[in-house]
């Protein structure tokens, strides 16, 4: 299963990179969403996949069952998801304001910082 997911993540990254290379700001945003999902899946996968069996300590037990899923990657992913969301929200609003100011979402035409006539 891990091998399949490794290939799947590769596919997601490829899609994300392709979207990143677009000149349309929105497509770049789609790439951001896809890439953060891909990385989260990657983190869970390299921590090994265990079907079911969430990392919980059963009533009556004092320590976790060694057969349960690896809890560490999950904690990392939870942080990553939330931060990814923060990033996306900010980037989207930034794009919205950029459109208001410049009237375009074509990154090739956004040339405030580096005007065309610059050396």
């Amino acid at each position: 299963m891990e091998v399949i997911m490794a290939l799947t993540v590769g596919g997601m990254v490829a899609g994300a990179v392709y979207l990143f290379l677009s000149r349309q700001y929105l497509r770049v945003m789609f790439g951001v969403i896809l890439l953060s999902n891909a990385i989260n899946v990657a983190i869970l996968t390299v921590g090994r996949l265990t079907t079911g069996n969430a990392p919980l300590i059963a009533q009556g037990a004092e320590v976790m069952d060694r057969a349960a899923a690896n809890p560490l990657p999950q904690a990392l992913i939870l942080t990553a998801i939330v931060i990814g969301f923060g990033l996306l929200a900010f980037a989207l609003v930034l794009g919205y304001r950029a459109y208001q100011e410049m009237g375009t979402l074509d990154t090739g035409a956004m040339r405030v910082a580096e005007p065309e006539d610059m050396p």
């Binding site: 891990e2 091998v3 997911m5 490794a6 290939l7 993540v9 590769g10 596919g11 997601m12 990254v13 490829a14 899609g15 994300a16 990179v17 392709y18 290379l21 891909a38 990657a42 996968t45 390299v46 921590g47 090994r48 690896n70």
Partner: peptide
């Protein structure tokens, strides 16, 4: 762009496979 994207995706897959090949 397609070559670049597929290349990077392949590299990420290869890295994950290399990691999975190691004991955890």
């Amino acid at each position: 762009h397609a070559i670049l994207a597929l290349g990077l995706g392949g590299v990420v897959s290869a890295i994950m496979l290399a990691v999975l090949d190691q004991p955890l």
